[in-house]
Computed example of a mutant assay.
Amino acid sequence: MESRMRSQTILRSLPFAVMAAVALVDLLAWPGMGFMTLLTLGPAFAALSGSVGYTAAVGGIAIAVSLPLALYEHVLGEQQNAVTIVSIIGVTAASMLASRLRARRERELANVRLVAEAAQRVLLRPVPRRAGDLRIAMSYTSAAADAQIGGDLYEVVTTPRGVRLLVGDVQGKGLDAVETAAWVLGAFREAAYDEAELSDVGERLETSLSRHLSGEKFVTAVLAEVHEDEISLLNFGHPSPLVLGADGAVRRAEPQEEAAPLGLLVLGSPRPKPYRVGFAEGDQILFYTDGVIEARNARGEFYPLEQRTGILRVDDPQAALDRLRADLLAHVGGPLPDDAAMLLLRRQRS
């Protein structure tokens, strides 16, 4: 926001700086060199950020500046001066039209962004900060500029059978990936409430995706259900979550057998089996997508997530996850090449 305001200030002052520079050069140059016509740059630059009225005002100032310069060069009332004034008027009129068209497109873009943001809020709803004895934090970084969503997805729902959640990653990028993410989230939100077993939720997702996906597209995902001192996991080819014990130990919550992603089970691949890991008071579990662990720095080194989990051992889970995200971005040194989602659960009964 600050840099954008600075850029706007620079753009609004640019027409006056350019006209001042032209006037100075014209005064210092040999008479008759004809630099006055460059005053047309004033209204031309004004159209980049200013309104129609602002652009017209800058054009008027350009004409006002040209008159004393013409007087200084002894061309006032001559053909050269007339050409300069006509040029300024012509460029100002064209710039006013360009300013009007730009303003219209900016309004249209603003309306499109409002609609997109509303759709994004529906697709990826904010997760609850508390659910029973759980404290929850979420971080999502889209690889697409100015976008809030991409191919990564997440959801946390409180059902009659407890808290259930989903973290996943759609193969591919762009609008197709967003559409598939919406399909998966819609199916999960229904199945999480309807199905008694976590494996049945996974079957519903697979059935839904088999009707939607084509070719060899797929979605890696982890489903989870929180129990007393444990958490059940169902892993469809997704990076295994990290369990951060209250004692300081860090371990991967890996399944006994690898399973295929959603969308590929119809090819006869083995189905995942639910498994449980300990999740007691003070423990944390971090779900993430491969955009986190595959992020590289300038030397090509992957982000060492397991070595950085100590960042998460602070009081506020969301503040901890924000710090981990900042550390990830600092490691990359720029925008992430892929979407990166992280979901942190902390068991805290008090």
Rank of each mutant, 00 (worst) to 15 (best):
Q171H: 08
D146P: 01
G186Q: 13
E179H: 07
Q148D: 10
Y193G: 01
E190D: 07
G150P: 11
T158W: 12
V184H: 11
E195D: 07
G151S: 01
G168V: 00
A137F: 04
A192S: 13
R130M: 15
P160W: 03
D176Q: 10
A144E: 13
E195N: 10
D169T: 06
G172N: 09
E179F: 10
V156D: 07
S142I: 03
M138G: 00
A182Q: 03
V167E: 01
S142R: 04
L175Q: 12
D176F: 13
E190N: 11
A131F: 08
L166T: 09
A181M: 11
T159N: 08
A145H: 07
D152K: 05
V157L: 14
F188W: 08
D169V: 03
L134R: 11
A182G: 15
V157Q: 09
V156S: 02
A144M: 12
A137C: 08
Q148G: 12
S142T: 03
E155T: 08
V178E: 04
V156G: 02
G132C: 14
V178S: 08
Y154G: 05
E195W: 04
G150T: 09
D194P: 00
R130V: 15
G150I: 12
G186R: 15
Y154T: 06
F188P: 12
G168T: 01
L165T: 05
L175A: 12
L175P: 09
D194I: 12
Q171K: 12
A137N: 06
V156M: 08
A192F: 15
V156A: 04
T180C: 13
L175D: 06
G172L: 04
V167C: 06
A144D: 13
G150C: 11
A147I: 08
V170R: 02
A177P: 01
S139T: 03
D146A: 07
L185Q: 11
L165A: 14
P160E: 05
S139L: 01
E195G: 05
V178I: 15
G162D: 06
R189E: 08
R135A: 11
L165C: 12
M138H: 04
G151V: 06
L185Y: 03
A145Y: 07
E190Q: 13
E179K: 02
L153T: 02
S139Q: 07
V178W: 02
R164N: 07
D133Q: 14
G168I: 01
R161H: 13
E190V: 12
I136W: 14
V170G: 02
R189T: 09
I136V: 15
D169G: 04
A182C: 04
E190Y: 08
V157E: 15
D176H: 13
V163W: 06
L166N: 06
D133K: 09
V167I: 09
W183D: 10
D133A: 14
A196H: 12
G168R: 01
Y140C: 02
M138V: 03
K173I: 02
D194Y: 07
D146C: 00
G186P: 15
T158I: 15
V167N: 00
V163Y: 07
V184S: 06
G186W: 15
E155W: 00
E195S: 10
A182D: 05
G150V: 11
T180A: 13
M138A: 01
P160T: 08
V170K: 02
Y193Q: 04
D169E: 04
L134T: 10
P160Y: 04
T159R: 05
A137S: 04
A137T: 10
T141D: 00
A145V: 13
D146L: 06
M138D: 01
A181K: 06
G172T: 08
